[in-house]
Simulated assay, not measured.
Amino acid sequence: MGFFYIVFMLLKVEKEKFRIAKNLNFRLFIKQTLVKFLVIVCITTLFVWLTNKEALFMVLINKPKLWLFILFIYSAFSVYPQELVYRTFYFKRYHNLFKNKNLFIFLNAVVFSLGHIFFKNTLVIVLTFLGGLLFAITYNKTKSTLLVTIEHAIYGCWLFTVGMGDMLGFPE
């Protein structure tokens, strides 16, 4: 219900148009996202290898159909709604309240991480805070729900792929 309320508010109150902006710099976005992704790949692979070697790429190797299914469901039904709520709505609704953009981005990351508190897992809170910073910075630069959704989906799908899915609430 909350998600539908946010969509209603974006469309009717904030007069947000759901369309792809023509001035997006996809080439720059891809380069920047690839660099960040490679750093995330290195850190998370090392983390899983050091903390739980058995989980490393377990679902991808042992249950590839489940892996593909979860990547699709996660991207379509979790990432996109989160980006509408935590970036599109938040930025549209609250950007005028802050003169300091860095504080605004920081608070967005805090709110995003607190949205994951039901996992009752400190590592999830830390990861979603860091992800929230990355996504808020991307959204602040691009003003594009599409680009930040792509970025969020790439990083989130990677976490499941590398073997962190159980921690993030996905079956393994």
Rank of each mutant, 00 (worst) to 15 (best):
R87A: 10
N121G: 09
E54T: 12
K65F: 15
V162C: 06
F129W: 02
F77K: 10
F170N: 09
T44G: 02
N25Q: 10
K141E: 10
W158M: 06
N52E: 14
V111A: 03
A136L: 09
V126Y: 03
V13G: 02
F89E: 09
L84H: 05
V7I: 14
K120V: 12
N62S: 15
L147K: 03
K22I: 05
F72S: 11
I73E: 14
T142W: 00
W67Q: 11
N96C: 01
G132P: 00
M167K: 03
F160W: 10
I150S: 01
Y90T: 03
F18T: 06
L147M: 04
F91C: 02
I73R: 12
E16H: 13
P171W: 08
T51I: 07
T145N: 08
L84N: 10
T161D: 07
Y80I: 15
F89T: 03
T33L: 12
T128P: 01
G132I: 02
Y86N: 13
L56I: 03
N102R: 10
T149Y: 06
F118Q: 07
L159K: 04
K53W: 09
F47P: 01
K65N: 13
N52T: 08
I30K: 04
V124P: 05
K63A: 12
I154C: 06
I6W: 01
K99A: 08
Y86I: 04
I73L: 13
K36H: 14
I40F: 15
L60I: 15
L56Q: 02
L66D: 13
E54P: 05
L159H: 10
V85M: 12
I137W: 13
L68D: 06
T122A: 14
F106I: 03
V13N: 10
A21Q: 15
I30P: 02
F170R: 04
L103Y: 07
K36Y: 15
A109D: 04
T88W: 01
H152K: 03
K17N: 14
L123I: 13
F72H: 02
E172S: 14
F47D: 10
N96V: 01
F89A: 05
V148P: 02
K22S: 12
K22L: 08
F135N: 06
V48C: 03
K31Q: 15
A136W: 06
E151S: 04
G165C: 08
A109P: 11
W49P: 00
S144T: 00
L34M: 12
F119W: 09
G131Y: 04
L159Y: 13
F29K: 05
L134W: 11
L24H: 13
V79I: 14
V41C: 12
G132H: 01
V162F: 08
K36A: 15
L123W: 11
F47I: 13
I70C: 11
Y5V: 15
Y86E: 06
T161N: 01
V110G: 04
T122Y: 14
